[in-house]
């Protein structure tokens, strides 16, 4: 629709002149300006409303809480940039965490063991990550080869993988008696005063930014999301790139799941239910387009923090959970609605 309109627009001379004012700024910093302003306004408002909000401790807390969703959101951004979506992340999250947990020495569950051995902690974690990557690979493989919509494929694997998780655990949580220190550190430790989940999140973000901005893989992701056929005709290996994107997503979902298992001291087969929606919400609030080809990892970080700050603020203000649902949903709609409105004015 937009292409049509743009095609008709004015003379070449006019087109060369720079757009004016706010629009120019927006064009420059593109996707990040609106969510950034929104986040800053939110922080200022909450600091004025509640004195408890503005403290280092509280900010660290927010950073820790958003890490779980944030790590997945980095992967989801990459998937959405290709024009896809992954609804199976919540299930992958659970499967990877129960597999990793069951392999960790000292793990215990009421159900009969499926895997009758344990591994040193790093290898157990690695096994969990591989399980996640495998689920992602299967998603990517089906999507790339069958051309069925990603929404449907991952909706199916969401159910399927959740089923596998129940099958693996018999429906019982895996707990630790006791938890090995290294695994405890994985989700509960601190490095230089920062919680380990936050450290992992930061690392994942850095790698994600590097991938999307500085690698041929990242460039191909944007190209495929922007125009798949043109990319194919330019020699981009579309199928392979898609498979890699979903595999990465799966591994990151697994990483999140394992971190949470360590944090809460148990791997639940029901873990991560409906997380896919939180993750997607974070990505789109940041301003990444579900159509693909437009958005960035940094926008997603902002989006995830917006959600985290709102939750935190509402908690501090003592707003009951149910009202928080309402506020969060309205904020999601209005943040994205405002962005759509601006774009409509600007006619990108």
């Amino acid at each position: 629709m937009n292409q049509r309109e743009n095609h008709a627009k004015g003379g070449p001379a006019d087109r060369l002149s720079a757009p004016a004012g706010a629009f120019h700024l927006m064009g420059r910093f593109g996707d990040q300006l609106v969510p950034a302003i929104f986040l800053i306004a939110l922080v200022i408002t909450l600091s004025l409303v509640s004195p408890n909000f503005l403290s280092v401790g509280n900010f660290l807390d927010i950073a820790r809480v958003v890490s779980i969703i944030g790590i997945m959101a980095v992967g989801m951004t990459i998937v959405i940039l290709t024009g896809g979506i992954d609804l199976s992340v919540g299930s992958t999250f659970a499967l990877a965490s129960v597999v990793a947990a069951s392999l960790i020495p000292g793990s215990f569950s009421d159900a009969p063991r499926i895997l009758a051995f344990v591994l040193p902690v790093p290898f157990a974690i690695l096994a969990g990550l591989l399980v996640g990557a495998a689920v992602g690979f299967i998603n990517g493989f089906i999507i790339a080869k069958s051309r069925v919509e990603p929404f449907i494929v991952t909706l199916a694997t969401m159910a399927f993988v959740r089923g596998l998780t129940y099958l693996f655990t018999g429906g019982f949580p895996t707990i630790f008696r006791p938890m090995p220190p290294l695994f405890e550190w994985f989700g509960q430790g601190y490095v230089l005063g920062l919680p380990t989940p936050t450290i992992f999140f930061a690392l994942v973000v850095l790698i994600g930014v590097w991938i999307t901005r500085r690698t041929t893989f990242g460039r191909s992701i944007y190209a495929i999301g922007g125009n798949e056929e043109a990319s194919r005709l330019s020699g981009i290996k579309v199928q392979s790139i898609k498979i890699r994107a979903y595999t990465l997503m799966g591994a990151l979902a697994a990483l999140s799941g394992i971190i949470l298992a360590s944090r809460v001291g148990a791997a639940q087969p029901t873990a991560g239910l409906t997380y896919e929606l939180d993750v997607i919400a974070g990505v789109v609030i940041g301003g990444t387009s579900l159509l693909g080809g437009r958005g960035s990892i940094m926008s997603t970080v902002l989006g995830v923090f917006i959600l985290g700050v709102i939750s935190n603020g509402l908690n501090i203000a003592g707003v009951p959970t149910y009202y928080q649902y309402v506020v969060k949903g309205l904020l999601l709609i209005s943040a994205v609605g405002f962005d759509s409105y601006l774009r409509k004015m600007q006619r990108i």
Partner: peptide, 19 residues
């Protein structure tokens, strides 16, 4: 539909076939 990745820049389109 087939030649350009429209939302990408001139720079990115020029190098797309020989990354």
């Amino acid at each position: 539909l087939q030649g350009l990745v429209l939302p990408m820049t001139v720079r990115e389109n020029i190098t797309l076939a020989k990354l």
